[in-house]
């Protein structure tokens, strides 16, 4: 481990934290264009965060300390997650301490704190949101894990950088198992980030909302942190997708420090395309009923399992 690796590590985290709101802004812009609306500014999420940080926080009388700790914990876990996903380089010093299973565990921890905080105030909305979030989580989490396992079977490692390194080295070409897991991953990404077929980020209608219901009691800086964490989560998921399915352009061990010069533009292009693609998916699909969501996620989960199965079968 040398200095350049540490610099890359810090750079990666800083870029993730800084660019996450812009990625959401870009997604919203694309969506607006596709729906023939005038697009909001790319910087709107930043302004929103800034505004929220300035406001006076109102905390419900029945809230416990857990309610105030949760935003910091959720934000912190998302930042650490950004540190261990190889979005730019596969030579990251922190990565040895947590592999992909730990990454999924990290997301689970964030979810757990968020749902507990939502239940803390004791309103109907909070508990309803928490329940629905856990309903999404208990299927999405194993699905994500199975998706990662397909890739880790191929590269015989559960460490994301090693997987990316192996997949990007190219002598593998196409892998049938990955096709299945890619489909599963997209479904999981939509569900986990409260995107359209599963949840509508723009609605506050109690019949349908999941993520927003949990945040109803939050205000000011706590809300800002929660929203920022959600944007980071979307960014992280996109980067996991790149690491597993589009590993090209990432700076690898034998490419050296100059690789970063390629990696940063590559990441920007991938994010731009991914944002547009997500906007397209969200535009052409309609929000589904809440009790259809488990079916949607079960499909994702089974696709991921199938991916693993196909990989094992074709290898035999």
């Amino acid at each position: 481990m040398n200095a350049i690796d540490w610099i890359t590590q810090v750079l990666e985290v800083v870029v993730a934290v800084a660019a996450a709101p812009a990625f959401l802004g870009w997604l919203n812009q694309c969506r607006a264009w596709l729906q023939n609306r005038r697009a909001p500014s790319l910087w709107l999420p930043y302004r929103n965060l800034h505004k929220l940080f300035h406001k006076e926080a109102v905390i419900a009388a029945s809230a416990s300390p857990l309610f105030r700790i949760a935003p910091y914990v959720v934000f912190g876990t998302m930042v650490v997650a950004a540190a261990i996903i190889p979005s730019m380089s596969t030579r990251l010093p922190l990565v040895g301490s947590a592999d992909a299973i730990a990454l999924v565990g990290l997301f689970a921890a964030a979810r757990m704190f968020m749902t507990l905080a939502a239940m803390d105030v004791g309103t109907a909305f909070g508990t309803l949101g928490a329940r629905r979030e856990m309903m999404v989580g208990f299927l999405a989490e194993p699905a994500l894990l199975m998706v990662i396992f397909v890739a880790s079977q191929i590269s015989s490692s559960t460490a994301l950088p090693v997987i990316t390194d192996h997949l990007a080295s190219g002598h593998l070409g196409l892998s049938p198992g990955l096709a299945f897991s890619a489909v599963a991953f997209i479904l999981v990404l939509l569900a986990e980030n409260a995107r359209i077929p599963v949840d509508n980020p723009a609605t506050h209608l109690e019949l349908t909302m999941i993520h927003e219901a949990m945040l109803l009691e939050y205000s000011a800086r706590h809300l800002a942190l929660m929203e920022w964490a959600a944007q980071l989560k979307l960014f992280n998921y996109a980067c996991i997708g790149f690491a597993l399915f589009l590993p090209w352009g990432v700076a690898r061990a034998h490419i050296g420090p100059m690789g970063l010069a390629v990696a940063i533009p590559a990441l920007a292009i991938k994010l731009a395309v991914a944002g547009a693609a997500l906007a397209l998916i969200e535009t052409v699909s309609a929000k589904m009923r809440v009790m259809r969501i488990p079916e949607f996620l079960a499909t994702a989960f089974l696709f991921a399992v199938l991916g693993l199965l196909v990989h094992v079968l074709l290898k035999a």
């Binding site: 029945s62 757990m112 239940m119 803390d120 856990m134």
Partner: peptide
């Protein structure tokens, strides 16, 4: 995880 959120949330959190 689902079970444990239920366990903890219903006993210790809320009103």
């Amino acid at each position: 995880g689902y079970v444990m959120v239920k366990f903890y949330g219903v006993i210790f959190l809320g009103q």
